[in-house]
Simulated assay, not measured.
Amino acid sequence: MKKRKVELVVISDVHLGTYGCHAKELLQYLSSIKPKTLILNGDIIDIWQFRKSYFPKAHLKVIRKILDFAAKGTKVYYMTGNHDEMLRKFSDTGIGNISILDKLVLDLDGKKAWVFHGDVFDVSVQHSKWIAKLGGLGYDYLILMNRLVNWCLKKTGRPPYSFSKKIKASVKKAVSYISDFEDTATDLAIQKKYDYVICGHIHEPKILMRTAKDGSTLYLNSGDWVENLTALEYHRKRWKLYRFDEHQPQPEEDLFDMDALLDRQYFNLELDGLLN
């Protein structure tokens, strides 16, 4: 299979080591691309719920694939998240082409991109970790049950159904939390004069332009590989939200061309020069 060349790929919330992880689908996606830079934006290995008795070959193959990327010249940034927070003791260290960081600022064609996982905005993670861990365990089993239900639906020719998405959409606090998360991330990015703010954590893939009186920023969330099976791709000054489809593994959708917007004068972005 011919591999697509991509300048930058961002994936997050893979949760290797859990029942809900779609490692086979992720491996298929990674095998279809040749990225110059790969950002693993947190919760790649789920250390919170790690079990010695459960780490399938497909999960190990994903790790091998990432190491293979690095060995062949891809720059790999591993951004720590809450489920792999144990790696934060190794922050700002690197081995070959692999770097472990808590946050990152990149220069993308003269524009500044601010990258971090996003759990810093989560009060439950910061102050009540046992509640967050319990919730994570419950979420994992909910996804496992959901996969069984969807297998049955597929056999009967019916479309898949997402329990967690239904819960998120019906619970006001969940909807409010996602909105608050996006508002906080974009407000801070505008204050800091970043053109892009790239997060994960909330399992809600999105590309959203946010404009305020102090400026504008593009909010990007890479989603996850538990429910949404999404990634962010940046190539030739364009952002794309990739959604995996087993019947069409390389879809073109959600293209976002920043320069085109500037040319049409839809937004007036204030650039702050190159990285300090």
Score class of each variant (00 low, 15 high):
residue 4 R to G: 01
residue 4 R to I: 07
residue 6 V to N: 04
residue 9 V to S: 07
residue 11 I to S: 04
residue 12 S to V: 07
residue 14 V to D: 05
residue 15 H to V: 04
residue 15 H to G: 12
residue 16 L to M: 14
residue 16 L to F: 08
residue 17 G to A: 06
residue 18 T to M: 08
residue 22 H to T: 10
residue 23 A to P: 02
residue 27 L to Q: 07
residue 30 L to D: 12
residue 31 S to Q: 12
residue 33 I to N: 00
residue 34 K to A: 14
residue 37 T to D: 02
residue 37 T to Y: 02
residue 42 G to V: 04
residue 43 D to C: 00
residue 44 I to P: 07
residue 44 I to S: 07
residue 45 I to G: 01
residue 50 F to N: 09
residue 55 F to P: 05
residue 56 P to L: 06
residue 62 V to H: 01
residue 62 V to L: 15
residue 66 I to S: 09
residue 69 F to D: 00
residue 73 G to Y: 00
residue 75 K to G: 00
residue 77 Y to H: 03
residue 80 T to P: 05
residue 81 G to P: 06
residue 82 N to G: 03
residue 91 S to G: 10
residue 100 I to G: 05
residue 104 L to R: 12
residue 105 V to S: 15
residue 106 L to N: 05
residue 107 D to R: 15
residue 111 K to E: 11
residue 113 A to N: 07
residue 119 D to W: 08
residue 121 F to L: 13
residue 126 Q to I: 11
residue 127 H to P: 02
residue 130 W to T: 09
residue 138 G to F: 14
residue 140 D to M: 14
residue 141 Y to L: 14
residue 142 L to G: 05
residue 144 L to I: 05
residue 147 R to Q: 11
residue 150 N to Q: 00
residue 151 W to N: 11
residue 154 K to C: 02
residue 156 T to E: 06
residue 156 T to W: 13
residue 157 G to K: 02
residue 159 P to G: 02
residue 162 S to M: 03
residue 165 K to W: 09
residue 167 I to H: 12
residue 169 A to F: 11
residue 170 S to L: 14
residue 174 A to R: 09
residue 182 E to G: 02
residue 192 K to H: 13
residue 193 K to S: 14
residue 193 K to Q: 13
residue 195 D to Y: 03
residue 196 Y to E: 03
residue 205 P to I: 07
residue 208 L to E: 08
residue 212 A to K: 10
residue 213 K to A: 12
residue 213 K to E: 15
residue 215 G to H: 04
residue 215 G to F: 01
residue 216 S to T: 12
residue 218 L to Q: 02
residue 223 G to A: 04
residue 226 V to L: 13
residue 226 V to H: 05
residue 226 V to P: 02
residue 228 N to D: 12
residue 241 L to E: 04
residue 242 Y to V: 03
residue 249 P to Q: 01
residue 251 P to E: 03
residue 252 E to R: 10
residue 257 D to S: 10
residue 259 D to C: 06
residue 262 L to S: 06
residue 266 Y to C: 06
residue 266 Y to N: 08
residue 268 N to I: 11
residue 271 L to V: 07
residue 271 L to W: 06
residue 272 D to L: 09
residue 275 L to C: 11
